[in-house]
Simulated scan of single mutants.
Amino acid sequence: MEYLLLQVLNGVQLGLLMFLLAAGLTLTLGIMDLVNLAHGSLYMIGAYIAWTLIGVTDSFVLGALLALPATFLVGVAVEIAVIRRLYARDHLTQVLATFGLILFFNELVRALWGPGGKSIAVPAFLNRTIEILPGVPYPAYRFAIILVGALVAILLAWLVARTRLGMLIRAGASNRRMIGALGVNIELLFSLVFGLGAVFAGLAGLMAAPIASVRIGMGDDILILALVIIVIGGIGSIKGAFIAAMVVGQIDIVGRAFLPDMLKTFMSSSAASSAAPAISQVLVYVLMAAVLVWRPTGLFGQRT
């Protein structure tokens, strides 16, 4: 039971990281009707900017706090320079253009930071374990990720449901032509939304960096899971993205933790260890297919 609890917490931690990435993606796709394959690149850029600023300030917290507005500015610059020209284009053009942005960002990172990977050390005050229950230790940094992710999820829910900006975001998701006709500056709203999505992606990247390496293309693989999450939860739904991210995180982590022992009953240990991660990923896509069959708009997507 202790091992199960630890793996469930790991699933929550992964789910919250995925939610941060998927939240920005579902905002841009739900409001702007933009298929942005380069969203994972903002995850990577956030991690690299954090690595630089942490080195300059010699403080993980200060460097991370400075990296968020820097990533916001990168997102706004990308929206103004490239993305703004894609709103009126079809989805195929958006896919091709944002795929080109992936290649651009990968080469930009290679030119600015070099081809090798970087590492961000876990801050000293979190480089320990805490007892979540008597006799059940858990890494403090992973627990901090859970707390930060949960806090951001609550703040985002409040922003969307209780503020004027959130009202405009919800109105834009429903009928962006109407709010444009009512005098809302659509270009400014889209820039803010895209920048906000970049902040969420950058926050996920810098929090994941001490656990995984900071490397070129680090956001490409996780982007696929983020797309699966917004399809399951429903395009444009923050609540759907959160619930889907929690489910996907549990399937991935718990499956990797317990499937090997189950598979060892009828195959070798090495084969079971290699097959378990693949089966966990397959289960995620099976869930997505089942949701699409049952509810094509996603769990909380708007029916049309």
Rank of each mutant, 00 (worst) to 15 (best):
Y3N: 14
L4K: 02
L4R: 00
L5T: 12
Q7C: 11
V8K: 07
Q13P: 07
G15V: 00
F19T: 09
L25I: 02
L25M: 10
L27K: 06
G30Y: 05
L34V: 08
N36R: 00
N36P: 01
H39M: 07
I45G: 10
T52P: 01
V61Y: 14
L62R: 11
T71E: 02
F72M: 13
F72W: 07
F72H: 01
F72A: 12
G75S: 04
V76F: 03
A77Q: 12
V78T: 13
I80Q: 11
A81G: 14
A81C: 12
R89E: 13
R89M: 12
A97Y: 11
L101A: 06
L101P: 03
F104R: 07
L108E: 05
L108M: 10
P115K: 14
G116F: 15
K118L: 15
A121T: 15
V122K: 01
A124K: 14
F125Y: 15
N127P: 11
R128E: 11
T129W: 09
L133K: 00
P134I: 01
Y138I: 08
A144L: 10
A144R: 07
I145K: 04
L147P: 02
V148W: 01
A150M: 11
A153W: 03
L156R: 03
A161W: 12
R162E: 05
R164M: 09
R164C: 05
I169T: 09
A171N: 00
A173T: 10
M178D: 11
M178C: 11
I179D: 09
G180Q: 10
G183P: 01
V184K: 13
E187K: 14
L189M: 01
F190N: 12
S191F: 00
G195N: 00
L196H: 06
F200E: 03
F200I: 07
A201T: 07
G202Y: 09
L203P: 02
A204C: 10
A209H: 08
A209W: 05
P210F: 00
A212S: 15
R215V: 12
G217F: 00
G217C: 09
L223H: 09
I224L: 10
L227M: 11
L227K: 05
V231N: 04
I232Q: 03
I232V: 10
G240D: 00
F242E: 05
I243F: 08
A245D: 02
V247Y: 05
V254Y: 01
V254M: 13
P260F: 09
L263F: 15
S268G: 11
S273T: 13
A276R: 06
P277E: 04
P277R: 02
A278W: 12
I279H: 13
L287K: 07
L287Q: 02
V291G: 10
W294G: 05
R303F: 11
T304Y: 14
